[in-house]
Amino acid sequence: MSTVRIDHLVTSGTFSLDGGTWDVDNNVWIVGDDDEAVVIDAAHDADAIVAALGGRRLVAVISTHAHDDHVDAAPALAERTGAPILLHPADRELWDRTHPDRAPDGELADGQVLTVAGVELHQIHTPGHSPGGVCLYAPALGTVFTGDTLFQGGPGATGRSFSDFPTIVESIRERLLTLPPATVVRTGHGDSTTVGDEAPHLQEWIDRGH
């Protein structure tokens, strides 16, 4: 069996919500071996993601949440590869704003496990940035993919529709900061961090009230 690895590419595009549009760079994570893989957040550029897959079988297109910058390339990637798009149902309203004519193929659910190349990805429902935000914890790889729930330096933004600051703080406190401190946090934008680096700052975030 070939070694499981995490490939990372950054794609660029826009994020639109509540009448505003912003230029953004997104992290796209590919987890798998030489034969099969999953894509976490198909952002902006299906061609670049297909190239990074390099002919491997795509098991699933996993959406940590349904903000348009994280799912805009998902239908094209699914069409190119035949892989199902998976999304937590609580984010379906957001999804439908971007892709009204293309439903996701399956649902993510708290506690479920998706296996790729022999590695388990545990689904952790972490609402707050959006109602259906999901993080994916891979114990064997010592990493968690947090989408826009937890970044280096604090929680994801909660200033727009469908988001709530107390909810995201509770999600991070109860579901993410309880993971082993050495767990690498691979985020939806920007640099990675670790659970141990972020945990001491929880009260600061609360006091700051992002």
Rank of each mutant, 00 (worst) to 15 (best):
D47S: 14
S163V: 02
V10N: 02
V144Q: 13
V28C: 08
A46T: 10
A66N: 06
R5W: 01
S16K: 06
L179S: 14
T158R: 00
S63G: 08
E174A: 14
A157E: 05
T158C: 09
L9P: 00
L136H: 15
P104S: 14
G54P: 03
N27Y: 04
E93A: 15
P181V: 14
A74I: 11
F151A: 05
L179C: 13
A157D: 10
R175N: 12
A60G: 05
F145S: 12
T143L: 12
P75K: 15
A37Y: 01
G156K: 00
A90S: 14
D197Y: 02
A42W: 05
V31H: 07
N26D: 12
G133I: 01
I49F: 07
G159K: 00
S12H: 12
T194M: 12
A52Q: 11
Q123S: 11
G190M: 05
L141I: 12
N26I: 01
Q203K: 00
D23P: 08
S163R: 04
S192I: 02
L87R: 12
L58G: 08
P200G: 09
H44N: 05
S192R: 13
L202A: 04
V28R: 04
L179R: 11
G196I: 12
D207Y: 00
F165Q: 01
E204G: 01
T158S: 07
T178Y: 11
F151D: 06
S16Y: 01
T81R: 01
P200F: 07
D25W: 00
T146M: 08
L141Q: 13
L176T: 09
A42S: 11
S192G: 09
V195N: 08
P131K: 13
V144M: 13
F165L: 01
G132Y: 08
G82M: 11
Q203I: 03
R175H: 13
V185Q: 10
G132I: 11
R57H: 09
D164C: 10
G32T: 02
C135R: 02
F162Q: 10
D91R: 12
S63F: 01
S130M: 04
G154T: 03
L53E: 07
T178R: 14
G13T: 05
I172H: 02
D25I: 00
D191F: 06
P155M: 03
I124A: 11
N27G: 07
I124Q: 07
G209H: 07
R5C: 03
P166N: 07
L17R: 09
E204R: 05
D101H: 15
I40A: 07
Y137H: 15
G111W: 13
A76Y: 04
A90M: 09
I6T: 12
T149V: 15
D207V: 02
T194R: 12
I6L: 14
G118N: 10
D148Y: 01
D33R: 03
L150N: 03
L77A: 12
G54C: 04
V50G: 05
A43Q: 03
C135S: 14
A37W: 02
V113I: 15
D41I: 01
V24A: 03
R102M: 12
V28G: 04
G32R: 06
V50Q: 05
F165A: 03
E79R: 13
Q203R: 05
T187M: 03
V113N: 07
D23C: 00
E198M: 08
D96C: 10
W22R: 11
L53G: 04
D69C: 11
V113S: 11
P139C: 15
A52C: 05
N27M: 05
A182M: 10
N27H: 05
